[in-house]
Design a protein around this nucleic acid. Structure first.
Length: 549
DNA sequence: TCCGCTTGCACCTTTGAACCGC
DNA sequence: AGCGGTTCAAAGGTGCAAGCGG
């Protein structure tokens, strides 16, 4: 990792500072609407905020292989999602600096809808095809090294290459669940672990970095031939498809022919590319200038973010959205008294929403980031198993009890698999948000259900128990079963005042090599929405003029 | 019929254990 | 016995194409 070349430190993640005392961690898990936060700096320079956690604001993140990302972005990045989970390519890697070398941080990624549209690839470009499907459970991918010291993170590139995307709503592996043909925006969150190797306590501070060139549309098969070729050319695992005509030689070999055979899709794509694309450029004025394209860029929202990369905006083939390009914000979590021990490392978290009704109304189209919506504990290695299987075996919550016995730590409930209600956070045409009580006294098994954009959608992955209320407010952490050897216990209570730590780190486990964590709920990290970080409400705003189908 | 999704395939890289020599 | 380098097989990551289903 160290030898990998990091891109210049000129990356301009849109930043946001979490003001001291602000209660909302990851307040902007949403369609990434333009940030209007007054405190949001316009550049990667350290955002300003008050409070003792000054260093969190000085953290800088540089997207690795940003040029490659840009190349994909210019073509309209597509990411394959499969039932078994598919890695992202380019993979999300970043160079972090400005950390306190001795302070422990937790790095994690979530993927949030970039807008609320469903897309189709038509005439060699992505067009809006309707309203988005209800968002999948908002899972988080916690870097397996978490928590680790700043020195550790800064020593080398931070790679999230093992992050996988899936379209399996019941995915038991903790992969990030997405809807196909939807546009998403990955976000990197840096959370300062508190004195107990956890976050979620009153002093938790975090930063969020969003690189708009990492926006992508999830697909089950590639639509844009350009993207296919970029993947083949740049992804070592796809070397087998390289050739004089990229995949054509491969196809010829497969069919036992000694001449290139063009697949139907390739032929179709190339025909479209040579005609439709040109026509499209002519229509949009690409051939003569960027002005018109700029107007259709998804991030062309007029957001007061001066650090947006206008170049990307010019080149993105994606239909416009109201999202800002890059968002970077740092918050200091103060108001939440809940606290978690980071007893385990966990790569996945599942998000849910915990927002107040008041905030919902204020900040329309957005939903909470699962990440910081609740305390995080780093050593929830076993928690995934507990959540995924224990819950199934012991619907009444006995699974947690078992876990307690093994780990000797407070039980962590499987409610981490609680789904999020992303669209409930969007202000959907004035549909009010129905807040859930902050705790669920009697968890019961809930089968996964389609998310509703209006009403709370009780949902559980893999047979976890969730009450509707819990699901709304608790994020979930996922972990691959293989890694769940369990020491951490999960507590599922939503009660923000009486919960035992959700995660407990085994002694000496803090800096162990990558391990996947079991699903753990992070409590209390998303107290509410940041009033200063609101998003545009109208879904029709930026995106409609691009190419609504 | 169209479109999206799943599945199986071949090809490739990565990873780690096994082996060998110093 | 310990260390470092090499080899090799297994695991896993790719895109493609056929087939299925809504």
């Amino acid at each position: 990792m160290l030898q990998e070349k990091a891109s210049a430190v000129t990356d301009d993640p849109v930043s946001r500072v979490r003001p001291a005392g602000e209660t909302d961690l990851f307040p902007d898990r949403s369609q990434l609407g333009p940030s209007t936060a007054p405190s949001a700096p316009s550049a990667p320079s350290a955002p300003t905020s008050s409070g003792p956690d000054q260093n969190i604001e000085n953290i800088k993140v540089v997207l690795h292989e940003r040029e490659l990302w840009k190349r994909f972005h210019e073509a309209g990045t597509e990411m394959i999602i499969t039932k078994a989970g598919r890695r992202m390519f380019p993979s999300y890697k970043a160079k972090v600096s400005g950390m306190n070398p001795k302070t422990k941080y937790i790095l994690l990624i979530d993927v949030v809808p970039a807008d609320d549209h469903r897309y189709k690839f038509s005439e060699n470009k992505w067009m809006v095809a309707g309203k988005a499907e209800p968002a999948m459970p908002g899972r988080l991918y916690v870097h397996p090294d978490s928590p680790a010291t700043g020195a550790h993170w800064m020593r080398q590139l931070v790679s999230f290459q093992k992050l996988k995307l899936t379209n399996n709503h019941l995915d038991p592996f903790g992969h990030i669940i997405l809807n196909s043909m939807h546009k998403y925006q990955p976000r990197l969150h840096i959370v300062k672990a508190d004195e107990n190797n956890a976050f979620g306590s009153k002093n938790t501070a975090y930063c969020t970095h969003v690189f708009h060139e990492t926006t992508f549309i999830s697909v089950t098969s590639y639509q844009n031939h350009k993207i296919t070729q970029l993947k083949i050319e740049n992804n070592p695992f796809a070397k087998g498809f390289r050739g004089s005509e990229e995949g054509d030689l491969r196809a010829s070999r497969i069919e036992g022919k000694d001449y290139p055979v063009m697949s139907k899709s390739v032929v179709r794509q190339r025909i479209i590319s040579s005609h439709g694309h040109l026509a499209g450029k002519l229509r949009t004025g690409v051939l003569t200038g960027h002005s018109q394209v700029l107007s259709s860029y998804p991030y062309d929202t007029g957001a007061p973010l001066t650090n947006l990369d206008s170049q990307d905006a010019l080149s993105s083939p994606f239909p416009p959205s109201r999202d800002p390009g890059v968002v970077y914000h740092c918050f200091k979590h103060r108001d939440n008294s809940r606290h978690l021990e980071l007893g385990c490392k966990q790569p996945y978290l599942e998000s849910s929403s915990l927002i107040s009704e008041e905030r919902f109304f204020r900040s329309a189209p957005s939903y909470e980031s699962p990440l910081l919506s609740r305390p995080y504990c780093a050593d929830a290695i076993a928690s995934r198993e507990a959540c995924m299987y224990g819950g199934v075996e012991a619907p009444s919550g006995s699974g947690s009890g078992d876990r307690d016995e093994r780990s000797g730590s407070p039980a962590v409930n499987c409610n981490m698999w609680a789904p999020m209600q992303p669209y409930s956070r969007y202000s959907v045409d004035g549909v009010p948000y129905q807040p859930f009580p902050p705790h669920f006294p009697n968890p019961a098994p809930v089968l996964p259900q389609p998310a509703s954009s209006i009403l709370p959608r009780p949902q559980a992955d893999f047979g976890v128990y969730n009450s509707a209320m819990v699901q709304r407010s608790l994020p979930a952490v996922a972990q691959s079963p293989s890694s769940s050897s369990g020491s951490a216990a999960l507590t599922g209570s939503r009660d923000t005042t009486s919960h035992p730590p959700l995660y407990h780190k085994k002694p000496g486990s803090a800096l162990q090599p990558l391990k996947e964590f079991s699903a753990c709920s992070i409590q209390g990290m998303i107290p509410g929405r940041d009033p200063s970080y609101q998003h545009q409400m109208g879904l029709s705003g930026a995106g409609s003029h691009w190419s609504d189908g």
